[in-house]
Computed example of a mutant assay.
Amino acid sequence: MTALGFLYPGHSAEDDYPRIEQLLGSDIRVDLVHTDIGEDTHRVDALRRMGAAERLTAGVEQLRLSGAESVVWASTSGSFVYGWEGAHEQVRALARAAGLPASSTSFAFVHAAREVGARRVAVGATYPADVADLFADFLRAGGLDVTGVRASGTVTSAEAGTWGEAEVLALARAADHPDADAVLLPDTALHTAAHVPLLEKELRKPVLTANQVTVWEGLRLADRRVNAPSLGTLFLREPIVQA
């Protein structure tokens, strides 16, 4: 049994995690600890407070006691708002507190894009434009080329959590670009675990979503690879090797 630990901010789309655990169909356990979200708003200052060290470390002991082999801060906006170097420091502090390999959803997107062989990516974000642009900057710092950003302007995680399949598909279609190797949907408050096969069928390319890449990152840190095609291209056992 491999136990994966996740620190999830608030309550929006946390039910994606037991769904993903079920779809993995293997000896994988997904343990979720909720962190204090503070003010629920997609505003840079509030997002930085949400990702502060004291909020993250408060849930670490519970994950340690659960037997987690890795820990991932399951927030995209609560990590990339610190910038590339600041997000690295956030993860280092989390690893020290947990005594475990650690990462965040923002880094998961960079690693997952490389895994599926995507150099050029399109972004479909629920966030306001200024926050979405910070995610694009983060991806560029990670060596990816961003073909375009589609921002939907939702103000809260609670609002994003109400989106269904139709809204998620519309966002992905609007974000897609002919030159993009993959489409990225970066909000862990967005329910996407059930929609990845449809998204990839419609767009005919890999689609990387926040909760999907977060769990994949936890597996990567635990040195596990699971073949789960129902979770999309990312979860095919053999990686696509870049030329």
Score class of each variant (00 low, 15 high):
residue 131 V to C: 02
residue 162 T to D: 01
residue 139 L to E: 03
residue 201 K to W: 13
residue 39 E to Y: 11
residue 206 P to R: 03
residue 80 F to T: 10
residue 180 A to K: 08
residue 45 D to M: 12
residue 230 S to T: 11
residue 184 L to D: 02
residue 240 I to V: 15
residue 206 P to M: 00
residue 171 L to T: 07
residue 185 L to Q: 02
residue 240 I to W: 06
residue 203 L to Y: 04
residue 223 D to L: 13
residue 122 A to K: 02
residue 109 F to S: 05
residue 17 Y to I: 07
residue 46 A to T: 14
residue 120 R to F: 14
residue 34 H to S: 15
residue 9 P to C: 07
residue 154 T to V: 12
residue 58 A to F: 00
residue 215 V to Y: 02
residue 39 E to L: 14
residue 169 L to W: 01
residue 203 L to P: 04
residue 236 L to I: 05
residue 98 A to W: 03
residue 119 R to W: 09
residue 85 E to C: 04
residue 33 V to A: 07
residue 11 H to D: 11
residue 132 A to F: 06
residue 189 A to G: 13
residue 5 G to R: 08
residue 135 F to H: 15
residue 69 E to P: 01
residue 152 S to G: 14
residue 136 A to E: 10
residue 57 T to E: 15
residue 36 D to A: 09
residue 136 A to Y: 01
residue 50 M to H: 12
residue 182 A to T: 12
residue 163 W to C: 06
residue 138 F to N: 05
residue 161 G to A: 14
residue 73 W to Y: 14
residue 205 K to F: 13
residue 65 L to K: 15
residue 219 L to S: 12
residue 45 D to A: 15
residue 171 L to P: 05
residue 135 F to R: 08
residue 88 H to P: 00
residue 31 D to R: 12
residue 45 D to Y: 06
residue 40 D to T: 10
residue 180 A to V: 13
residue 205 K to R: 15
residue 92 R to K: 13
residue 162 T to V: 09
residue 172 A to C: 10
residue 156 T to Y: 03
residue 69 E to Q: 15
residue 218 G to V: 10
residue 54 E to L: 10
residue 146 V to L: 07
residue 85 E to I: 11
residue 233 T to C: 09
residue 208 L to Y: 09
residue 98 A to N: 09
residue 65 L to S: 14
residue 125 A to E: 10
residue 116 V to E: 01
residue 233 T to M: 01
residue 156 T to D: 04
residue 241 V to S: 11
residue 96 R to D: 14
residue 213 V to R: 01
residue 206 P to I: 08
residue 185 L to H: 03
residue 52 A to T: 12
residue 97 A to S: 12
residue 160 A to T: 15
residue 172 A to R: 00
residue 6 F to W: 03
residue 117 G to S: 13
residue 221 L to D: 06
residue 203 L to T: 10
residue 116 V to G: 01
residue 147 T to M: 08
residue 148 G to T: 14
residue 122 A to N: 04
residue 99 G to E: 05
residue 46 A to V: 13
residue 81 V to A: 04
residue 235 F to L: 03
residue 2 T to D: 04
residue 33 V to S: 01
residue 151 A to G: 11
residue 14 E to S: 13
residue 19 R to L: 14
residue 174 A to W: 01
residue 118 A to H: 08
residue 84 W to E: 07
residue 6 F to K: 07
residue 29 R to T: 14
residue 234 L to V: 05
residue 40 D to S: 10
residue 172 A to W: 09
residue 155 V to M: 05
residue 71 V to Q: 06
residue 234 L to H: 07
residue 83 G to R: 00
residue 175 A to V: 05
residue 144 L to C: 08
residue 178 P to Q: 11
residue 81 V to M: 11
residue 94 L to C: 11
residue 63 L to W: 11
residue 4 L to S: 09
residue 17 Y to V: 05
residue 240 I to K: 04
residue 219 L to Q: 05
